[in-house]
């Protein structure tokens, strides 16, 4: 079995290795950039302070310093903790994050696996992180961690639903579950006969987009939906007993998941890697420009997530569930109905 990467014939293991390494580097670079840009700098300017300034120019090497600090810390666990589960939990969360990147396309050929049911796959693997969080909460042998994990379980499952229902609107519009097809449908679409900017679904599916972004905020457990972490009441929720490299894994997975969801949102709603077909760019050009296009869109969307995170107080657990079940799910269902009617009518 062989596959062609940029016109060169490679054995299956070679092409897989290239894809995995390129994927890991891209994801980690993007995540690091997002952490520096938003968590360190953007937020500091919002809060009228400078943020890190010492490590490297404008503190740009701060993240490396932090990683170095975490790596050399002692591996601590509580006496009563279930050590096997305790150690596995961060890995489960992180693998759920990396599995999401598998199907996100960054160009006509730049996708690790072009699955026919890509949308379904992304939403399914993103839900796996609940398992890791529940494992962490249980294995920590800490009451705060347990409460945080149970809250996370309730919250993540509640917000899967509006997310899936919001995405259904896009799937109806594109008529496909494949992410490449969805991108192509947006790039080749037209608005009232005008095809200059394609037809990014955010224009027609703006309700679904809003619901999706709110659900993303909750899936990422960012304020105002950060009940599982809730540093002022649960100290750090399910992460409370983690330190050193295990905490680093949680940290990476939190922000990599933010990038992943933003990339999914930009693929589904903002046109993904593609520039409109009417501009007449060849596939070869798009293989170079595409990653930049989708990365820009994703980084901007992560910016929105952080902007909201640092502007709002957090909800209470019951208010959070109310918002999901009584507001977002009915809205998403109505959106599906209206989309289906319009799709059939026009």
């Amino acid at each position: 079995m062989s596959a062609a990467v940029l016109g060169i014939e490679l054995a299956y293991w070679q092409s897989t290795l290239i894809r995995v390494v390129a994927g890991l580097v891209a994801v980690l670079l993007l995540t690091g950039g997002v952490v520096y840009l938003y968590l360190f700098k953007f937020v500091s300017f919002m809060q009228s302070r400078l943020g890190p300034m010492e490590a490297g120019p404008y503190g740009s090497l701060q993240l490396l310093a932090e990683v170095g600090k975490w790596l050399q810390k002692e591996d601590i666990h509580t006496e009563d903790s279930d050590r096997l589960v305790f150690g596995l939990a961060p890995a489960v969360v992180l693998s759920s994050t990396f599995l999401m990147f598998v199907v996100i396309p960054a160009g006509p050929d730049l996708v690790i696996a072009n699955l026919g049911t890509g949308v379904y796959y992304v939403l399914a693997v993103s839900a796996l992180s609940v398992l890791g969080i529940l494992m962490a909460g249980w294995a920590s042998a800490n009451k705060y961690a347990l409460m945080g994990a149970l809250r996370a379980g309730g919250q993540l499952i509640a917000y899967e639903l509006p997310m899936v229902l919001a995405v259904l609107g896009v799937v109806i519009m594109a008529g496909s579950l494949n992410l490449q097809d969805i991108v192509a449908a947006q790039a080749g679409g037209e608005i009232f006969g005008f095809s200059g900017i394609g037809n990014p679904y955010v224009l027609t599916q703006f309700v679904a987009f809003a619901v999706f972004m709110i659900a993303v905020q909750a899936e990422l457990t960012q304020t105002p939906f950060d009940m599982p972490i809730a540093e002022s009441e649960l100290v750090a929720g399910y992460q409370v007993e983690y330190s050193g490299i295990r905490f680093l894994v949680y940290f990476i997975s939190e922000f990599a998941t933010a990038v992943a969801f933003a990339a999914v949102a930009s693929t589904l709603f903002l046109g993904g890697w593609a520039l409109p077909t009417s501009w007449g760019l060849s596939a070869g050009v798009m293989n170079v420009v595409g990653p930049l296009v989708v990365a820009t869109k994703a980084v901007l969307l992560v910016g929105v997530v952080f902007w909201v995170r640092f502007s709002f107080p957090r909800f209470r657990e019951d208010q959070l569930q109310k918002l999901a079940w009584k507001v977002l799910i009915p809205i998403a269902l109505a959106n599906i109905l209206v989309t289906a009617v319009f799709k059939v009518a026009f």
Binding site: M46, Q47, S48, R49, T223, P224, D226, A230, E231, S232, E233, F310, S311, F312, P313, R314
Partner: peptide, 12 residues
């Protein structure tokens, strides 16, 4: 604000 999870007001 901090107790409610909004950390920006306390910096102001």
């Amino acid at each position: 604000g901090v107790q409610l999870g909004a950390i920006t007001p306390v910096f102001f």
